[in-house]
Design a protein around this nucleic acid. Structure first.
Length: 937
RNA sequence: GCCGAAGUGGCGGAAUAGGCAGACGCGACAGUCUCAAAAACUGUUGGGCCGCAAGGCCCGUGCCGGUUCGAUCCCGGCCUUCGGCACCA
């Protein structure tokens, strides 16, 4: 053994030296333009795309984690006979460049392009099959000229418009802040001042025009959870848009419109809530309420939306002093403002129906607003609680006689009623009421039973009447502001006071009795017939605010002229260049607003003096169409030629981080649909297949970022182990869609494995001609089953199990070699298939061996291996025998075993017998080729 | 908080049309080689118990409950972690 080991070591041609072979092959591939996708290649096209990196500085391990598997897939597609285009570029505009500019006193352009130079080198070291001839960079005038061109097309198509929108404003720095720059409890990250939202005129893209189409993911193969996230993001709801009469002297508006998905509850409206920023708030607020309202609006402007919408936070609001009238029942209800209502959703106003909405219920209890139930309970249950002394003697006896069950504790009587018992109960209760007391039935019915009759809680007026009478009778409820507040003090009632079920309407005038299934459509029809409202679809999705008060972005190509207003810059004058000499004030205010040469221009229409728009575009716009530019990256006339777009688009396989599941992917889909409607494309979806990989985190389990100081760079590992090892290790870590904390400790395992492959391929092997030996059949079986497994896994992006299968295969080959002479032909096949299967993952190593074993350059232009099903088939299977679900034996049986034989073999098992003997055998379950399960008792 | 995911040995993970839990790798331990170390190679490695041994038994996939002959997988309820929440990209 010892001497043999030495012989092997000596026989080794040389050691695995990744640094040497990787550089050599990268240069060769580059020189041969091996990965340049040709437009005239007759093979079927395959457009593989990995999300282009943001130019943040150094490439970190997360970039490799995203790109290496994408490259493996692209290489696999190439070997499957496709003309693969796998382009790369840089997402180069954005906030960090400006932060660097201020902090390090370096121009954003220099910072960005220096980063690009470094990243390009790091990307090349990966040995990915990128087509560098198509590189794009969104911050170059060649590119952003077309980003501006898109803006002009959107403007022409009425997909771009201007409106007021809030932005974070730091009063200390006198500047707009990004969400990211607001830290702690709403403070400016730079100066610490408390910040608040300020309204600015800004540009929007009308993405909501495509809301319904974006909901439809027909024809694209995307993961279900991504589609679901997009669906929830768009948030389509059907409902009623309905007016409430407003009559405030001096206010022009005569109604306030609300959107509701629950029109069936409209008779239960007891208040209305406006978003604090609703334009009517200012107008309808009464002088007495002015101060409180103003203060509340100010406070709301300091909050983020996440804070505002938190359902955990206690609801708050302020009364405006104004009232509106519900057209359905004439009820006059107060108008409040509350931060949980957003101006951007629906009409920015909601009707408060506390009896059938949890949030409204809490709001009503807090502020003493009445609660009027207008829907029956699904279970028909009502409750009645009669405190000790409320009822005369004989009450419980009468209940028993009537067959009504009850509980009694300390003299209190608690009754839970089915619907059919309610009438009888009311009769009994009334007859037994002690002088000066009352009782009530609540839940499905809402009856307040007094000595002289019963009152129904069916209106705000009834709420007051009932409450007044109760207070007169019982001083302990004097503090209650509403009937519901009084009832809420009885723990026995807690579970029947409100519900959100879709049930029959009550207390709803002519609509009372409408069953749950028809309540919503009938209420809508009722409103529509009278001209009070109309059926409406509302989306959570909002139009895309694209204005950024920043320097490092594509300038929005419009000018403002005193005579002609908003004038688009003519296409022939694009690009509107960013001035190189902009001054970066430490305040961070957009330098464009100070740059006279940029700011002052002439109106394209009248030639008179005009001002340029100084806002730039959201960088998500740059990344919404880059996949189109790759097909024709150098076109000086158009963003891309029609011919090339039709040749290459849409992207066949897109891969990228799960953090982009909603926004980027939704914006890109919107762009493609708009491009189609403008007449630039024939298709409406940019990415046919999507795979969303997980995010690689720092060793501490947090997102890698420079500020956290947990960034792991791949360079050192690449130097130590080579790119092939780093690539394979990242793919071996776990399922690609999961991500997780990054830990380097296992990388040596991959390196050891590649070293074993190195030895396996190069060391001499004792061969013979043994075509019929069982070992030869086994060798070929292993080869072919591995091909099938690796092919399946690579198709499904299961790279971790693909690598495990390859490791098992190499372990097997080493054992087969050591076991004695192997069949020459089968061994040659094994090594050849092994190299082909390794090529997409370890491209340099595979290429090196392909050459060393005298095979023709390049392995990356070879055909992916196929498997022979006859060789894959197993000859024997393990049959599991269970007794009462516990494994008692495992039998090796021929794969062709019949059911009868399997049952026979199972019952005959020595190990099974003790568990079956003396017991009654019930059913015996047989799963073909897998198990026999015997049930005994 | 809301939306989407994930919780399995010391660690990364494998196994889901409901059917052998822990593939593959790391680490650890033991050994070979070496003056020694590194590297490399070989073996063992979920926990507990019985047995000299061959071997056998019980428990075990975040927590609680359910369905089933059988649950990591399906259902109900929790807990924790991660991603997104519209100006980070």
């Amino acid at each position: 053994m010892t001497t043999e080991g030495k012989t092997k070591a000596e026989a080794r041609i040389d050691r695995y030296d990744p640094a040497a072979i990787e550089k050599k092959w990268q240069e060769r591939w580059e020189a041969d333009a091996l990965y340049v996708a040709r437009d005239d290649d007759p093979r079927p096209k395959w457009y593989a795309l990995t999300m282009f990196p943001y130019t943040s500085g150094d490439l970190h391990i997360g970039h490799w984690f995203a790109m290496a598997p994408s490259d493996t897939q692209a290489r696999y597609r190439r070997m499957r006979g496709h003309n693969v285009m796998f382009p790369i570029g840089f997402d180069a505009f954005g906030l960090p460049a400006e932060n660097a500019a201020i902090k390090q006193n370096i121009h954003p352009s220099k910072w960005t392009f220096d980063n690009v130079d470094r990243m390009r080198g790091q990307l090349r070291s990966m040995g990915a099959s990128f087509d560098w001839s198509r590189e794009v960079n969104t911050a170059t005038p060649d590119y952003y000229r077309w980003t501006q061109w898109w803006f002009l097309q959107f403007l022409k198509s009425n997909l771009a418009y201007r409106a007021l929108a809030p932005a974070w404003w730091c009063p200390g720095c006198q500047t707009v802040l990004a969400n990211e720059q607001v830290v702690g409890d709403g403070e400016c990250e730079r100066c610490g001042s408390p910040v608040s939202k300020k309204d600015l005129e800004q540009w929007f893209f009308r993405i909501t025009r495509y809301a319904d189409e974006l909901l439809d993911c027909e024809g694209i193969e995307w993961p279900e959870q991504i589609r679901l996230m997009q669906r929830n993001w768009i948030g389509r709801s059907e409902g009623l848009d309905v007016g409430f009469d407003l009559d405030v002297p001096g206010v022009e508006a005569k109604e306030i419109r609300v959107f509701t998905t629950r029109p069936d509850t409209i008779y239960g409206v007891t208040f209305m809530v406006l978003a604090p920023e609703h334009p009517l708030v200012e107008k309808i607020t009464t002088p007495e309420q002015r101060a409180a309202v103003d203060e509340y609006v100010r406070e709301t402007r300091r909050q983020s939306e996440i804070e505002r919408l938190s359902t955990e936070k206690e609801k708050s609001g302020v009364f405006t002093g104004a009232y509106v009238t519900n057209r359905f029942n004439g009820e006059r209800v107060p108008v409040w403002i509350a931060d949980y209502v957003l101006l951007t959703y629906g009409t920015g106003a909601v009707m408060g129906v506390p009896a059938h909405d949890e949030r409204d219920f809490a709001f009503a209890l807090k502020y003493g607003l009445p609660v009027i139930p207008v829907l029956a309970r699904a279970d028909g249950v009502s409750k009645s609680f009669s405190p000790a002394g409320t009822m005369k003697d004989g009450f419980t006896g009468a209940l028993t006689e009537a067959g009504i069950s009850f509980e009694e504790a300390n003299g209190h009587v608690m009754v839970t009623l089915e619907e059919r018992q309610a009438g009888v109960y009311e009769q009994i209760a009334r007859e037994h009421l002690a002088p000066g007391s009352w009782t009530e039935i609540v839940g499905n019915r809402w009856r307040f039973i007094f000595e002289d009759g019963a009152l129904e809680l069916d209106s705000m007026e009834a709420d007051r009447r009932i409450l007044d009478r109760c207070k007169a009778l019982q001083p302990s409820v004097a503090k209650a502001r509403t009937v519901m507040e009084m009832l809420n003090g009885v723990p026995f009632y807690r579970d029947v006071l409100f519900h959100t079920d879709y049930t029959a309407m009550i207390h709803s005038r002519e609509l009372s009795g409408t069953p749950g299934g028809r309540a919503i459509p009938e209420t809508i029809a009722f409103a529509e017939k009278r001209g009070w409202g109309r059926p409406t679809v509302t989306y959570r999705l909002r139009d895309w605010l694209i204005s950024r008060q920043r320097y490092w972005g594509a300038p929005i190509p419009v000018v403002y002229c005193d005579r002609d207003g908003i004038v688009p810059v003519p296409e022939s004058e694009l690009p509107v260049l960013l001035p190189d000499d902009a001054e970066f004030r430490p305040t961070g205010e957009s330098p464009l607003t100070y740059h006279q040469g940029f700011l002052n221009t002439l109106c394209p229409t009248c030639g008179g003096p005009a001002r340029r728009e100084t806002d730039t575009m959201d960088t998500f716009i740059c990344s919404s169409w880059y996949q189109m530019r790759y097909v024709d990256p150098k076109n000086p006339e158009r963003p891309f030629s029609r011919e090339k777009a039709e040749k290459w688009l849409p992207v066949d396989q897109y891969t990228g981080g799960a953090e982009h599941a909603v926004m980027h992917l939704l914006y890109a889909r919107f762009f493609t649909k708009a491009a189609r409607d403008i007449g630039l494309l024939d298709h409406g979806e940019p990415f046919l297949r999507l795979f969303s990989q997980g995010q690689i985190l720092g060793p501490d389990g947090q997102r890698m970022s420079k500020s956290r100081g947990n960034v792991i760079a791949p360079d050192e590992q690449v130097q130590k182990y080579g790119a092939d090892t780093v690539r394979a290790y990242l793919m071996f870590l776990g399922p690609w869609d999961e991500g997780g904390p990054f830990d380097l400790s296992g990388i040596s395992g991959i390196h050891r494995w590649l070293n074993r492959v190195w030895d396996l391929v190069q060391e001499p092997v004792a061969t013979a001609s043994l075509p019929h030996a069982p070992a030869t059949r086994e060798l070929r079986h292993q080869t072919h089953r591995t091909i099938r497994k690796v092919t399946d896994d690579i198709e499904r992006f299961r790279f971790n199990t693909m690598l495990a299968a390859l490791m098992e295969y190499t372990n097997y080959l080493a054992r087969a070699r050591d076991a004695g002479p192997v069949d020459a032909a089968a061994w040659t096949e094994a090594i050849e298939k092994l190299l082909l299967m390794l090529a997409p993952t370890a491209p340099h190593l595979a290429e090196e061996f392909w050459a060393r074993t005298g095979r023709p350059y390049s392995i990356h232009t070879q055909t992916w291996p196929s498997w022979d099903p006859a060789l894959v088939a197993e000859e024997t299977v393990t049959l599991v025998v269970q007794v009462n679900g516990k494994v008692r034996d495992r039998l090796t049986v021929p794969a062709s075993i019949s059911e009868a034989e399997a049952r026979e073999a199972a019952t005959a098992s020595e190990k099974v017998r003790p568990y079956v003997e003396g017991k009654i055998v019930g059913k015996v379950i047989y799963v073909p080729g897998r198990l026999v399960s015997i049930v005994v008792s």
